[in-house]
Amino acid sequence: MSAGGGGGGAHAAIPQNNIIAFGVVGGLVGIYAAYFLVDMVGPYMSFLGALGAICGIVWGAAAVRRVANYGLGTGVPSIGMLALGIGIIAATFGLAVGGIAGPVVALVFAALIGLVVGILANKVLNMGIPIMVQSMTEIAAAGAITIVGLSTSMIGTFMFFDEVVNGVVVTQGVASGVMTTGYIAVIFIAGGLAILHPYNANLGPDEKQDRTLACAFEKGAIAMIIAGIVATITPFASGSLTILIGVAIWYISFSGFYKRVKRDAFKVTGTGLLPSKEELE
């Protein structure tokens, strides 16, 4: 009908390879730009990490859309939780051993575990979804990018350990800034929902790729706003710019989503409020 691209199989207006490139390149560029610019320009540049996370979220939601279209049998949320579960294992490992290459190591190892789980799902559990292996790899890697990106925007760095000079903490690391404080749980749920919810909310015979992805941008913006709220109370990142840009992205993407809902719906009518007790009598 329109440029939206239909559901069913792997039909899409935007080819998946472009979305993979968008997720990997956009995600890593955002995370590294946040890391270097926070040092060079100022803590308010930490918002770039959340932009990287949005790239990861959109990529993850597009991959969920493709694989869940085949019917997982368990509902879409399970695959989003799996993505963040693998992502957290790989992100802890990658950031702890990788140093400056941490996000890349996390991405590679998340993809590795995702690949293994995808092969197990098809060969051992006999799920028989042809794109399971590729999609699981993508979803796990997107989960890792989301976690690292949101962590970076919360504390301004992806280094795992605190940098201590003469007994004074000059930079807070992910271990003490995000994991010990428990903000990782916020990332887990906000990031996981952003990856699993777009397809879960839009699925059905009239599901369109661009509507689902507009919803993914919108959910990513909510995760960005939450990361900004956390950043306002952490010492080495500044949250106001993150919140402002997050609200702007949310407004634009929600308008885009609502426009596409109106385009795809047969008819949109207002029902008004429920009648009050007096009116019913």
Partner: peptide, 29 residues
């Protein structure tokens, strides 16, 4: 110690989710 407990618990949660989803694919929901 505080960092260690935080990392270990979030790691355990990650493993828990992976191991809850794999069998749910096996039983088909």
């Amino acid at each position: 110690e505080a960092d260690f407990i935080g990392i270990a618990s979030i790691f355990a949660i990650g493993l828990f989710f992976v191991n809850a989803v794999i069998p749910s694919y096996n039983i088909g929901g």
